[in-house]
């Protein structure tokens, strides 16, 4: 130990130390809700592109119908909880001493993977936000246009290297959440006996497989979108939306052929 603590009396516990239990429990909870719940919704939304660009566009429209409230919701329910979880997670990783080499037991491998996938997910999420989220625009990213959802996402994911990195990032996040679910159940004492923990492992595998399929399905679906066709569909949907909102006069809409979707 360092000489940082000259005497025991000077070694008063800090705020973080005094509330360690509470902070770790909130960290664990944040992993499930809202961050984990968001991941599920996010991957399912993306997988909806398998139903065609119009299905995906309508989901995106639903999210963006929040308008100016959207950033507030994003920060309160996604970014801030995720930053909190990631910051505590990093501190936990720094304090641990992985030892799978000496103790290659399945639980230990899962423990180590939980940390590895957390770090991969962190790097991936930063890059992903820069690449597609509007916040990335000032830095040359932000390629996703919510009015042309499938076509812009598809174009961004077209390069093979990007697709591979996305597959790794998505699968890391999925592993992290599904194994985290199991770990959370032990942490909170939901499953306590070895038999219950084994059953919970199956639950965790099932969630992982389903979410992994949704994630990879969404990724493949985006890349299979015909960009030109999608642009046309999205254009029509944007006009229909504007028409609904009364932003455009009906005759202008008529002229652009909204009334003739057969084209």
């Amino acid at each position: 130990m360092s000489a940082s603590s000259q005497s025991a009396n000077a070694d008063q516990p800090s705020f973080l130390e005094r509330n360690q239990f509470l902070i770790y429990r909130l960290f664990s909870l944040a992993g499930l809700v809202p961050v984990g719940a968001f991941l599920v919704v996010h991957l399912l939304t993306n997988a909806s592109v398998l139903g065609g660009p119009e299905v995906f566009q309508s989901r995106v429209d639903m999210i963006h119908s929040l308008g100016p409230l959207l950033p507030v919701v994003e920060w309160a329910f996604i970014f801030l909880p995720m930053i909190f979880h990631a910051a505590v997670g990093m501190a936990i990783i720094a304090g641990g001493l992985p030892n799978v080499g000496s103790y290659p037991y399945s639980g230990n491998i899962r423990y180590t993977l939980q940390r590895v996938t957390g770090m991969i997910a962190f790097a991936f999420i930063l890059w992903h936000i820069w690449q597609l989220h509007a916040m990335g625009k000032p830095l040359g990213g932000g390629a996703f246009d919510p009015h042309h959802a499938a076509s812009t996402a598809s174009a961004a994911l077209r390069p093979m290297a990007v697709a591979v990195l996305y597959a790794i990032g998505v699968l890391s996040a999925v592993y992290h959440l599904s194994n985290g679910l199991w770990s959370l159940g032990v942490t909170w004492g939901i499953w306590t006996s070895p038999a219950a923990m084994r059953r919970a492992s199956w639950l965790s595998v099932a969630v992982g497989v389903a979410l992994g399929a949704a994630g990879l399905g969404g990724l493949a679906g985006m890349r299979m979108v015909d960009v030109d066709e999608a642009r046309a569909v999205e254009g029509r949907m944007a006009e229909a939306r504007e028409l609904l909102e009364g932003k455009v006069a009906p005759q202008a809409a008529d002229a652009s052929g909204v009334s003739d979707p057969a084209h």
Binding site: F21, R25, N99, Y103, Y105, G107, N108, Y111, S183, T187
Partner: peptide, 9 residues
Amino acid sequence: IQMCGNAQN
């Protein structure tokens, strides 16, 4: 107990 990371070693 919060320090436990469920490695189960």
